[in-house]
Amino acid sequence: MIAPAGSVDRIASALLANGLILRGGFNFTLGDVPPPGQSGAPAKSVLLVGQAGAAPWPHFLRWQEKQSRIIANPLDTWSRDVIGAVAETFGARAVSPSDKPYLPFQQWAMLAEGLKPSPLGILMHPRYGLWHAYRGALLFEQQLPIEAAEAPIHLCDSCVEKPCLKSCPVDAYSAQGFAYQSCLAHVRGANGGPCRTGGCLDRNACPYGTAYRYPAEVQAFHMAAFADL
């Protein structure tokens, strides 16, 4: 069991070695129903682990090159390996957004960083825009010295033009939500080349956080995973 004093900084340093960062956290309250921690007892705190921009990409590629076989969902597997090793070192339980039954990662992220969803459903970050992700979380069976997040400015509120809702050729995103089947058919179809090679046109149209935009190869990787190509 780790000692709270100084542990958060040491966890952040361990994650940074693989391009990952802490994305905030919080202590569960009496009204919450937290998932179990490492021993099976209810967790008392959670730290979100993720990325800003494509910082983990070179680390992931080096790991992938060393694998002796093709791995399904390799980025998820790499994330579990890296975050799991940190969890073991610091006496935590590592969990992933793709674990079943699904854990409320988006709600946790909103609590941890005070963010709100963009029109695309991706949480809007005041610095990273839409170019960030949550790759896992660390559950602890003791409270940690975590300061409550202050709600940042929600950039979407001041964005009048909303180019993120005007760039998709099949209007996949609208006030009615995400038209999954229309998006999937387009990406897989004859006219979906720009989306397959350069990523979602709506996401790329967002004017915020462009310094953190994923390179084309990273966006193509995620699009191929989405469309099962």
Rank of each mutant, 00 (worst) to 15 (best):
V82T: 03
L15F: 06
S45I: 11
G24C: 06
K162Q: 13
Q106S: 08
A3D: 15
A151R: 05
T29L: 15
Q106R: 09
G37Q: 08
A224G: 08
F178Q: 06
I71P: 13
K166T: 11
R213F: 08
V187Y: 00
C164A: 05
E217Q: 07
G40Y: 05
R196Y: 02
R127H: 15
A225M: 12
Q51Y: 07
K100W: 15
V8H: 02
Q142P: 10
D9Q: 14
Q181K: 06
T77E: 09
Y212L: 03
A55V: 15
S158R: 10
Y208V: 03
R69C: 11
F28D: 12
K44F: 10
L130R: 01
Y208L: 03
A225D: 07
H222K: 04
E65A: 05
A216E: 11
Q143A: 14
G209V: 09
Y180I: 04
A43I: 13
A190C: 09
G50R: 08
V82F: 00
P163F: 02
P194I: 01
Y180D: 11
A85F: 12
I71N: 06
I146A: 03
Y134G: 08
H186N: 09
D228S: 15
G129Q: 01
R69W: 07
P119V: 07
F26V: 04
C200L: 08
Y134C: 12
M124G: 05
P34C: 11
L115A: 06
F226N: 05
A211I: 06
Y128C: 12
W57H: 02
Y214P: 02
L165W: 03
P101H: 13
L20Y: 05
A175F: 11
P58F: 09
I2A: 13
